[in-house]
Design a protein around this nucleic acid. Sequence first.
DNA 1: GACCAGGCACATC
DNA 2: GATGTGCATGGT
Length: 215
Amino acid sequence: MKRKLKLIFKRLYSVFGPQHWWPADTVFEIMVGAILTQNTNWSNVQKAILALKEKKLLSARKLYQLPRKKLAGLIKSAGYYNVKSLRLKSFLKFFFDRYAAKIKLMDAQDLKTLRAQLLTVKGIGPETADSMLLYALNKPVFVVDAYTKRILARHGLIKAEADYSQCQDIFMRNLKNDVKLFGEYHALLVKLGKDYCRKQNPKCEICPLWSIKNA
DNA sequence: GACCAGGCACATC
DNA sequence: GATGTGCATGGT
C-alpha cells in the first residue's frame, strides 16, 4: 500500500509537475473558493471570484454586509447560486464573528477541534472543510473528492463503496503527514481525474498510471 | 441535447 | 443507516 501510494505520486508528479494549488491571492479567497467549487467546474468558480474582486467585495467584512440576494447574483456563474450564497453567509457568520471577537482566526487550536467546528457550519462538509484546512490554513489533512475515490477504487486500493474517512485514512496512515505533499497529491489526482478518469469515456489505457495498475 | 463538474443538506423509507 | 433528490451554470 505504502509503496503503491508513493509510486502513484511519483508518477503523477513526473508526468504533470507541480500543480500550484490553491490558485488564490488570499487565505479568505481560498475559503470562498472552496465553497463555490462544490460539485462545480473550477472555470465557472473563477468567473464568480473575478466578479467579486471587480466589485472589491472579496473580504470577510464586505461579504458579511452584502445582502444575500446580491451575493447570489454575483456568484451566478458558479452555479447553485442560491444555496451557495446561503452557504457563504453561514460560513461568513462563523468566520467574521470569530475575527471580530479577535480570536486569532482558528489558528492555535487543536486540528480535530478546528475541523469539527468547520463541520458545524451549514454548507461545509468534509471535503470543503479539509480543503480549507489544507490549502488555506496549512494543516496536514488529506482532501478526498470524487476523483480520488474513483482512482483509488480502480487501482484496488479501496472498495467502491468506501466512505470519505476511509479514503482519507488510506493516505494519512501511509504517507508522511506533510502539507506540501498532501496539497500536491490531491491536486495531481484531480488533474489525472479531469484528463483521464471522467465518468464517461475514461481513457484508462493511455492513463499515466495504466502501467502501474497491477504493480 | 445529454452529460458532467474540485458537494452538501434534507426527505423518505 | 442507506438511498434518493434538489440545487444551476457553462464546457465538452
